[in-house]
């Protein structure tokens, strides 16, 4: 398997990068770890004329904490997230999700931001970050805007990026947060992912991903849990009608609903 030809550009500043990415005359793609982009190109599903390698853009490698806020730059790899002390201290579940994603080579090369930008419904971090209301900062010709991770994708493999570069992923980790992340993997990628969060300020925040669908918060389940008197079964019942998983080699719609329900039950049982 070979890659189609392209031009490789290596901007050093955000401005240079945005100029390249936002150039409507040429079909370009942001290239960071390449774990998703090069795969799509090899499979013939993408053939951009220009790959804009932004790993060298100043300021994208940062990973920092300021109070409850965690900020992870676009060029930070999964392996770096897994290893970062700041992440392990403040939001250890994100570190463990990063450390269990795909395989070690993908974790070495791939970036958290890249994972989110590809809007892959099998994404582990997207589910966890959706649950915690994380957001991304995007920069384009018209400046910087902030988009919730939950709103980053229009649909599977279709992000809302408009000639924009992701600068960083930001999450606020409140005091007293308890987190349970559950997933089931039957083949190479997770089938269903569930993240359940609870803290005194926000109450319950629950996201479900996979099953052929993008990660999203399930308000109905959160509402049931936030009554404070709900049984696990009530939460699972509330989830039932909310998912329309696509049937694929991992299983039928009905089975994936079952898996989501089971994982939800397990997640809630762990932190309730």
């Amino acid at each position: 398997m070979y890659l189609p030809d392209f031009e490789l550009r290596r901007p050093r500043t955000v401005e240079e990068a945005v100029a390249l990415i936002g150039d409507d005359a040429r079909d370009s793609a942001v290239y960071m770890g390449g774990t998703e982009l090069l795969l799509l190109m090899k499979l013939g599903l993408a053939a951009p004329e220009v790959l804009v390698d932004c790993k060298g853009v100043a300021g994208l490698k940062g990973l920092g904490v300021s109070g409850p806020r965690l900020s992870i730059g676009a060029a930070v790899t999964h392996a770096a997230v897994e290893a970062a002390e700041e992440v392990n201290d403040l939001f250890p579940e994100l570190a463990s999700v990063a450390g269990a994603l795909a395989n070690v080579r993908v974790r070495t090369a791939g970036t958290l931001g890249g994972n989110l930008c590809f809007a892959d419904p099998h994404s582990d971090p997207a589910t966890l970050l959706t649950a915690i209301d994380a957001s991304v900062r995007l920069v384009g010709r018209h400046g910087v805007r902030t988009v919730a991770v939950a709103d980053l994708a229009r649909g599977p493999y279709d992000a809302v990026l408009d000639g924009e570069l992701l600068l960083a992923v930001d999450a606020e980790v409140p005091d007293g947060l308890r987190v349970a992340y559950e997933r089931i993997v039957l083949r190479e990628r997770p089938v269903v992912t569930v993240a359940a969060l609870h803290d005194p300020q926000h109450g319950w925040r629950i996201a479900v991903g996979g099953a052929g669908q993008l990660a999203r918060r399930i308000g109905e389940v959160e509402d049931v849990m936030n009554t404070g008197t709900a049984e696990l079964g009530d939460a699972q019942a509330a989830l039932r009608g909310q998912l329309r998983p696509a049937e694929d080699l991992d299983g039928s719609e009905e089975y994936k609903q079952q898996l989501a329900s089971v994982l939800l039950g397990r997640a809630l049982a762990r932190i309730r």
């Binding site: 398997m1 490789l8 090069l38 795969l39 080579r105 070495t108 090369a109």
Partner: peptide
């Protein structure tokens, strides 16, 4: 596999493992 799944092409770059089939 040529899809970064099987690991047969693993090399180290600065002592970290990469799929050389999925690395420019």
């Amino acid at each position: 596999c040529e899809l970064s799944v099987c690991g047969s092409c693993t090399v180290l770059i600065d002592n970290e493992p990469y799929s050389s089939c999925m690395t420019l």
